[in-house]
């Protein structure tokens, strides 16, 4: 009985991992291709949530989940063109500072536009409720969320591994100089990657708004988890991020099962242990430009 319940926590952790993945994967892509730790990534997640609420008022829940990421991806073009592009070859500390500053500006902007008080958000009544499989309890909404994550994940994987776009991006991660020597400009690819990354973060924001509090600091909260996932998974590895997200979800769930007070600390302990034995992360590749 106790074992079964532990297994239920593990499965729930896997679902939760999917939830982290949407944010972490974009962060990892931008990091791998551009060499920039985008600390403003959480801001796009928050924008995704706030914009989806505005759209939902007019058009309802469904369109809001689709249109909000599209709008934020457009914002991503400006972000890449006018901010990130200047820092690909600069000292990493500069991009760290700039994106950190931008995250604070974005948070304050949300405060000015929408107010500091958290905004109400809910899902259509039909999505609420539980699904019992065997003796395991699931939230119906989270199962749908997991399906969306799976679709997005498959799409990204196909894009990176089965298209010429993906080949250039993957080559750009390892040897940007060689890509340039072949006469391919990486910049438009980088714009597309940033759009994709912040769009995924916004999709996360729009999808999580009905189940977590929508407030100005929500971006700052999620970026920490996403960053931990990317570090554990390792740079440049698609499956590393997937594995790390699921692992963080499971470790957190199991820790809360045995020692609830330590639940949030568990992912940092995990990061510490992984880095101790595998400094590049679980599946991290050796990337020459970062060595």
């Amino acid at each position: 009985m106790q074992l079964l319940f532990l297994l239920e926590q593990v499965v729930n952790g896997l679902v939760l991992g999917g939830y982290y993945l949407l944010i972490a994967l974009g962060l990892s892509l931008i990091f791998s291709v551009g060499g920039v730790v985008n600390l403003a990534h959480g801001a796009f997640y928050a924008f995704g949530a706030y914009i989806s609420l505005e759209i939902a008022k007019q058009l309802g829940f469904g369109p809001s989940v689709v249109l909000s990421p599209v709008a934020v991806a457009m914002l991503g073009i400006l972000f890449e063109r006018f901010v990130l592009r200047r820092f690909y070859t600069a000292d990493p500390i500069l991009s760290l500072l700039v994106t950190f500053g931008l995250a604070m500006v974005a948070e304050q902007l949300i405060r000015i536009v929408w107010g500091a008080a958290p905004l109400p958000a809910s899902m259509p009544a039909g999505f609420k409720g539980q699904v019992i499989v065997g003796d395991f309890l699931f939230s119906r909404y989270r199962l749908m969320l997991l399906a969306v994550v799976a679709v997005v994940l498959t799409g990204i994987w196909l894009l990176l591994h089965k298209t010429s776009f993906g080949r250039v991006v993957r080559a750009g991660i390892q040897r940007p100089d060689m890509v340039a020597a072949l006469g391919i400009r990486l910049q438009p690819y980088m714009t597309a990657i940033v759009m994709l990354g912040v769009g995924m973060a916004a999709l996360g924001g729009a999808l999580f708004a009905p189940i977590t509090i929508v407030h100005p600091a929500m971006g700052a909260e999620i970026i920490i988890v996403a960053f931990v996932v990317v570090v554990i998974g390792g740079l440049g590895s698609f499956w590393g991020v997937v594995l790390a997200a699921l692992l963080v979800g499971v470790v957190r769930g199991v820790t809360i099962h045995f020692a609830p007070a330590a639940g949030e600390a568990s992912m940092y302990v995990l990061m510490f242990l992984v880095l101790l034995f595998r400094p590049r992360g679980l599946l991290g590749e050796r990337i020459e430009k970062f060595e």
């Binding site: 989270r142 957190r252 609830p260 949030e264």
Partner: peptide, 17 residues
Amino acid sequence: DELVATDVTDFSPYMLK
């Protein structure tokens, strides 16, 4: 009586409990 850290945003493990 389960303790919850102040920065917890996901309560799903507690729901199972």
